[in-house]
Amino acid sequence: MHNFDFVKPASVADAVAALAAEGAQALSGGMTLLPTMKQRLAAPEVLVSLTGIAELRGVSGRAGASVTIGGATTHATVAAEAKAFYPALAALAGQIGDPAVRNRGTIGGSLANNDPSACYPSAALASGATITTNQRDIAAEDYFQGMFATALGEGEIITAVTFPIPEKAAYIKFAQPASRFALVGVFVAKYADGVRVAVTGASNDGVFRWAEGEAALSGNFNGSALEGLSVPSDGMIADLHGTAAYRAHLVKVLTKRAVAAAM
């Protein structure tokens, strides 16, 4: 990879200052960024590690209300510590990559990258999470702007993500067998004001909400409510691992299974 200057600030303020440098880029767990840099597809001049900032780590919450996760909290920590507050979210974190990846990868890194097949975006969108940065709060609805695109501006760091805790929720991931990313992943969350269904892995536009499914499930939170519905395959990802029609089909199958598994 190209060489760069490595800096590891101890506070968000210092990190923001470091990111102001020409060609600076934030590094969180590095699970996606490092392979990209090895391919020389990313070539930052300054790499600003967020792993040394204590204020970016940790899980806190209020049972039944919300859980807030620091931006540089690893998947492993979320899997262990968010369980008491939001078991479906913890279960999702425990399915990302593999154990070694979960020990490095972070929620902030995943959301900032917004890989169309990453797991976390589905939880954030289905939960109506708030993405907090060093500058502002962004609603999940506004945050995801298509494959690898987000509302984050230059020098903006995800400091925390707050998830309202649903009555019931589940994430079902159908893994792409090589990368272990989601071929399709569906996060279903039932709140008092309705059901939200967010889908990752399937669409060329990245994570999205399945509005028709949400409407049906809001009336009747049972897989049978989805009978008769179908997901159009337009805009779905087609690749070596699955056709667009297959992915569209999986959206419905996995939504049903998520409803059945919701806890």
Partner: peptide, 24 residues
């Protein structure tokens, strides 16, 4: 970061050493 042949322990947990910068 797929194969895990480079797995070591850093501060007690398994990490893929090919996906971590030494300075980090």
């Amino acid at each position: 970061s797929q194969c895990g042949a480079c797995t070591v322990h850093v501060d007690g947990v398994a990490v893929k050493s090919c996906s971590v910068f030494a300075q980090d």
